[in-house]
């Protein structure tokens, strides 16, 4: 699975991350089953995937926490295997679960890391103070982390990754479990960071998050990359929107399904509860006509709406649609 082109010096110099054929197996399970990744410097890059897709495993390999079984990668020009320490010097990782010392205060957590990086005395306290201020945590600086809210923890966790400005910042599901306000705050923070020149590789389960933040998105499922591109390119592959239809009578579902497929040219997805369908619709006009056709055929429609596709629907579109070949390796 190794492709030889990783040695191309021109290609890797401009890339913050370049990975070829990464594989990690746990027992019988291939958590990551051969992933290629090229992340240009200074970009926000999102890895989108459902639970168990292998996002954390991929990040942990790139952050030198676990060794890949196969494949190779460079991070900021350093080889993952041979120059692990150089890689560690140029990255920072904010893991999926807060990596903070719950017993210590916010300030002490930052001081601890600043000192481990080699800041001494005033420099270390200054660094901790600056970061607390920047992340709006000054008031809670002397509280123990176990008394922090989820949003405060996340901010402190990210602050702790910025003691020394990293070349690449890995953020593993930075907003999972946050309320919408806290999520907006973290998003703003990520954008500001990217503006300051840091390359950011983040993972997420939310299409919306990838869409909002990332210049490029890789969609992974069961350890494989099933699509990659800009948000616009991905949307073009999976249709600009999704039409959701609720039926008055669940027994109409087969008829409705066939009709919608004929009208819109995509396979509809039945909701588990029955009596409802989701289907890709290339334009609002086409969706409108499809609903009209249902009604004209005497099918009772109690509700319909147009929405952006959920991650679930993206996967359905990318994996469950034999008519439309995957636009994999579109890069």
């Amino acid at each position: 699975m190794n492709s030889p082109d990783t040695t191309d010096p021109r290609g890797t110099a401009a890339l913050a991350i370049s990975a070829r054929g990464l594989v990690k197996t746990f027992g019988k399970l291939q958590a990551v089953a051969g992933i290629d990744l090229d992340v240009p410097r200074g970009m926000i890059f999102a890895v989108l995937g459902p639970n168990g897709a292998g996002k954390t495993t991929l990040i942990r390999m790139l952050a030198t926490l676990i060794a890949p079984d196969e494949g190779k990668a460079t991070v900021m020009g350093h080889d993952l295997r041979d120059e692990a320490d150089a890689v560690r010097s140029s990255i920072a990782l904010t893991g999926q679960f807060a990596s903070l010392d719950e017993d210590l205060t916010g300030r002490e957590n930052l001081l601890l890391l600043a000192r481990l990086w080699g800041f001494r005395g005033r420099q270390a306290t200054g660094r901790a103070r600056d970061l607390l201020e920047a992340f709006n945590l000054s008031d809670a600086a002397n509280k123990q982390v176990k008394d922090y809210s989820g949003g405060m923890r996340r901010r402190l966790d990210i602050a702790a990754s910025l003691i020394v400005t990293p070349g690449v910042l890995f953020l593993d599901e930075p907003t999972t479990g946050l309320d919408p306000v806290a999520r907006q705050g973290v998003w703003r923070m990520i954008r500001d960071l990217a503006r300051s020149g840091v390359t950011i590789l983040l993972t997420t389960q939310y299409l919306e998050e990838a869409d909002q933040l990332a210049a490029r998105i890789a969609v992974i499922d069961r350890g494989r990359k099933i699509a990659e591109g800009t948000s616009r390119e991905l949307k073009a592959t999976i249709g600009s929107g999704f039409l959701h239809v609720a039926l008055g009578d669940a027994s109409d579902i087969d008829r409705a399904s066939a009709l919608l497929e004929a009208k819109l040219g995509h396979p509809p997805k039945r909701n588990v509860e029955g009596g409802a369908l989701s289907i890709m619709a290339d334009t609002p006009k086409a969706a409108n006509e499809a609903v009209a056709a249902l009604m004209a055929d005497g099918i009772a429609v109690t509700d319909f709406s147009m929405g952006t596709p959920s991650l679930d629907e993206v996967f359905f579109a990318l994996t469950g649609d034999p008519a439309e070949p995957e636009k994999e390796q579109a890069s």
Binding site: G118, A134, F135, V164, T165, G185, M189, S196
Partner: peptide, 19 residues
């Protein structure tokens, strides 16, 4: 929630590696 202040996002180099 306030934004983070850009001043703190200034580039910070790592100090000499401690023993």
């Amino acid at each position: 929630m306030n934004d983070i202040t850009p001043a703190t996002l200034k580039h910070v180099e790592r100090p000499a590696r401690p023993g």
